[in-house]
């Protein structure tokens, strides 16, 4: 009986361990809630040189729609270059307080692009983007929030059935593969990743321009 109880407890702990999504710690975030965020040039850990501009073009809307003032990303890049800061690797090493002095930003978002690739398996291909995000307070240097988002798109869905379907499919694949090779296809994936990563329950609490500002604590 005792043994059974022990097993039961063990099982319950095990199950609860599986189901509970490890809750993020938002204490630092709520202690220093930012109004404005500057997104600095992304660190690119991939060989795809076109990744940072595609990523950066799609970050503003999702972040601003969460309710934050987002400094214009293109202008940010130019202004940093203007003072000799053109290397993302170097920029990511700077103390966050620099971005308070330079921009007056409450927080700085550092993004690292971890994967940006197309993998070909026979006639299908899969496109992957993967990014790591870290938001730091510019006054204390504290890490306010961290996230990672991967989006995978497989090209094998769809395709016509019946005779000739395979050939048509092959041609479509070839065309698709050719298009991906010239960077076009990554944009929707980058957009999707940036939209997903800031949403509850793991994303950023609503900022001052969002109607849910200060009322969405229960979602996280």
């Amino acid at each position: 009986m005792n043994k059974f109880l022990l097993w039961l407890i063990f099982a319950m702990v095990f199950i609860s361990g599986c189901t509970t999504v490890q809750k993020k710690d938002y204490s630092a975030f709520y202690a220093h809630p930012p109004r404005s965020i500057v997104v600095v040039p992304a660190l690119n850990n991939t060989t795809e040189i076109s990744a940072p501009p595609v990523f950066t073009s799609t970050i503003t809307a999702p972040l601003a729609e969460r309710g934050y003032y987002v400094f214009p990303v293109y202008l940010t890049d130019i202004l940093l270059k203007d003072i000799g800061l053109s290397e993302a690797g170097h920029i990511h090493q700077l103390p966050p307080s620099r971005f308070l002095d330079l921009f007056g930003a409450d927080a700085v978002l550092f993004v690292t692009i971890e994967d940006w690739s197309t993998k070909y398996i026979l006639i299908s291909s899969s496109v992957v983007v993967d990014m790591k995000y870290e938001l730091k307070d510019t006054r204390t240097g504290l890490s306010l929030w961290q996230g990672e988002q991967q989006v995978v798109h497989n090209s094998d869905d769809g395709g016509g059935g019946g005779e000739g379907g395979l050939i048509a499919g092959l041609i479509v694949m070839a065309v698709k593969a050719a298009i991906t090779a010239i960077t076009v296809d990554y944009m929707p994936l980058a957009r999707q990743a940036n939209q997903m990563v800031f949403l509850p329950p793991k994303g950023l609490p609503a900022g001052p321009y969002n109607p849910e500002y200060k009322t969405d604590q229960s979602k996280f």
Partner: peptide
């Protein structure tokens, strides 16, 4: 919250 139009394309 905002009207985005073609801003994304414009940045790119």
């Amino acid at each position: 919250l905002f009207y985005w139009g073609d801003y994304e394309t414009s940045i790119y």
